[in-house]
């Protein structure tokens, strides 16, 4: 898994975030490094980011399904999870008194690129992880954490797929 360097990069980011978590101890960290973790201002910003990243992943999955029919079961499974997550977020927005999600941009067909899909999926996972502290609501944290579990599993499946192809 380390052979491509992807895992190493991910671990480095996690280590960095671990250091950032120890705020006084991390005072020496350069500003650019601190900025690597997105610091969301509030729940609406988190949910908007998640919605946008999910659209990106979904469009890439659609393109993948067209190009690689064998991926159909995988894409359908992930799409079902996305649908459920979207509905949960819609409920969450209503409960938190937030405006509905902005209309998603037209999902342009993406190139079929597993690395691109992986990057988009990782961005979606990170938006959840980095968004949790900004939610300010235990039930919302619980919902998004459970979604993050699904999405981290998807990310690992993509990693294993890439690993199998290399």
């Amino acid at each position: 898994m380390d052979s491509t360097g992807r895992q190493g990069a991910r671990s480095a980011r996690r280590r960095l975030l671990g250091l950032i978590a120890l705020s006084p101890a991390a005072a020496w960290l350069p500003a650019a490094a601190r900025l690597e973790a997105t610091d969301y201002a509030g729940s609406r910003e988190v949910l908007d980011a998640i919605d946008a990243f999910e659209v990106d992943v979904a469009s890439r999955l659609e393109a993948l399904e067209v190009a690689v029919p064998a991926a159909r079961a995988f894409v359908e499974s992930l799409s079902r999870d996305h649908l459920r997550h979207r509905e949960d977020r819609r409920t969450l927005r209503r409960r938190l008194g937030l405006e509905p999600a902005p209309s998603p941009p037209d999902a342009a067909a993406e190139d079929v690129d597993l690395a691109g899909l992986r990057a988009a999926q990782e961005a979606l996972v990170f938006a959840h992880a980095e968004g949790l502290p900004a939610m300010g609501d235990p039930a919302a944290v619980d919902t998004l954490a459970r979604h993050m579990v699904d999405l981290s599993r998807h990310l690992t499946v993509i990693d294993l797929w890439i690993e199998g192809e290399s």
């Binding site: 975030l17 120890l22 992880a129």
Partner: peptide, 21 residues
């Protein structure tokens, strides 16, 4: 605590990865 919540979130991502593999 925000900083612990952030760390716990990334730890959870790892645990799911281990479990899935």
């Amino acid at each position: 605590t925000r900083d612990y919540l952030l760390s716990a979130a990334f730890i959870l991502v790892d645990e799911v990865r281990h479990m899935t593999v």
